[in-house]
Design a protein around this nucleic acid. Structure first.
Length: 422
DNA sequence: TCTGGGGTCCTAGGACCC
DNA sequence: TCTGGGGTCCTAGGACCC
């Protein structure tokens, strides 16, 4: 049975979120910046039209933006995360099977259904806009890879009014695959594009028609699966259950370069605090940490240096204190004096549910108490704001602190910054 | 002056064991 | 000592995604 799969994608998501809460930017070009206000990560339709490219460094497009009276925002992930939650929750009103794929995308299993696929999609789209203010596009097909292609087309200019493209058992599929460049196929990145083009495969239809053993040799099973999906054979499963996290990362570029060990440690401890909060929120514990540091990619002083190291422990933990000890041991191994560092980060891995951890041979009681303490600290910080209670070793300011000069308010997640109607 | 961050999956190769 | 194959587990690195 070949079910119809839809991919729903929020249009220009971050820019659309900013617009929902600020009517004054209704028809203006809007861009949203990456962390550190470095480069453009989201653009409104108007911003795309004046020629701002995705990923452009701010300093290169700033004059263009000024010229067109554009609005520039630092990224406000609390706001986007909250808006994303609203959109995703509403999807369950239309179909029970929803796979949240990213902050702004979800796959929907549209079977069984009472109405035609087109009517259903249009109704989802209209209601989503009415209820959240976020415009969405919907592509429908037999597989995820095809639904992605349909979605991308649904966004194109001539279909903008309607925002829906249904390719399920559609005779249009062949033409559309022929018009889809190989690099625009989901899962085909820069490297694979080079290999495919060298073998005279330039569009999605050609990849579909290529012998699968050849594709497999060229691009491993990953590429072979994509080619099969283009033929309508489901290879990428529908993963409804919230996927278990395997790793939790927190890393940042510094506002300014840092060479001093103590300051780098401060930064790394700060990232660790954020990552541990996220881990406990998911009721997980980690048994390993990877620490990495590096110089500026564009201006390495005195020369490029980057390194990482991993510490693995016998027992998983969710206690900041314990993981801080692992971190110091790891950081000491990779830190080298005399470099101007620009970036650092940590990855927590070996994640397991924090309930029912195996009893420790030693100090088990001490660990249980720390677990309770950490949970209590999280609750207080949740209620009264980030870092209300924190370890003495955690600094919140420093040369490493990133820049965020243009952040909008946390309209939906902070009482003090809520929208006021007067 | 100014160039993001958080993830996943796959593969190759080394260590170790029988 | 230099002889053989096969299996597993782990990790680093590549590739890709949003």
């Amino acid at each position: 049975m070949k079910n119809a799969i839809a991919l729903l994608d929020c249009n220009n998501f971050y820019a659309s979120c900013e617009r929902v809460f600020d009517a004054s930017v209704k028809n203006k070009p809007i861009v949203v910046l990456s962390n550190n206000d470095g480069c453009v990560v989201a653009r409104s339709e108007e911003a795309k039209q004046i020629g701002v490219t995705m990923g452009a460094p701010l300093f290169k497009v700033e004059s263009l933006l000024d010229e067109h009276d554009a609005e520039i925002f630092s990224s406000n992930y609390a706001l986007y995360g909250d808006m994303s939650g609203r959109v995703m929750n509403l999807l369950h009103n239309f179909t029970p099977e929803v796979e949240i794929y990213s902050i702004d995308e979800a796959f929907l299993n549209l079977e069984p259904r009472k109405h035609s696929l087109d009517n259903l999609a249009h109704s989802i789209r209209e209601k989503m806009y009415k209820w959240t203010g976020i415009p969405v596009s919907i592509g429908i097909a037999e597989t995820k890879v095809l639904a992605k292609i349909a979605n991308k087309r649904a966004k194109k200019a001539q279909l903008k009014e309607q925002g829906v493209l249904n390719l399920y058992r559609s005779p249009k599929t062949e033409d559309i695959l022929k018009e889809t460049n190989i690099e625009d196929v989901w899962g085909i990145g820069y490297r694979s594009t080079l290999k495919l083009k060298a073998n005279h495969i330039f569009n999605a239809w050609q990849l579909r028609e290529t012998d699968n053993r050849f594709v497999r040799r060229l691009l491993t099973v990953v590429g072979a699966r994509i080619a099969l999906e283009l033929r309508g054979v489901k290879c990428l499963p529908f993963e409804q259950s919230s996927i278990k996290k395997h790793t939790i990362t927190c890393s940042r570029s510094f506002g300014q370069t840092v060479s001093d060990y103590e300051q780098i440690k401060e930064a790394v401890f700060y990232y660790l605090t954020r990552a541990c909060e996220k881990m406990r929120k998911n009721n997980l514990a980690a048994n390993a940490i990877t620490v990495f540091i590096g110089t500026d990619r564009f201006r390495p002083i005195p020369e490029p240096y980057s390194n990482s190291a991993t510490y693995s422990s016998t027992y998983p933990t969710d206690s900041n204190r314990e993981i801080q000890e692992w971190t110091i041991k790891t950081l000491e191994k990779i830190y080298k004096k005399g470099f101007e560092y620009r970036k650092a980060g940590i990855i927590l891995s070996g994640l397991v549910p924090s309930e029912n951890l195996t009893k420790r041979m030693f100090d088990d009681e001490k660990f249980r108490q720390q677990h309770k303490l950490m949970k209590a600290i999280d609750e207080i910080n949740q209620k009264f704001g980030k870092d209300t209670v924190r370890f003495g070793s955690i600094a919140t300011e420093g040369r490493w602190k990133m820049k965020q000069a243009r952040k909008s308010r946390s309209y939906t997640t902070n009482w003090n910054e809520m929208l006021v109607v007067s």
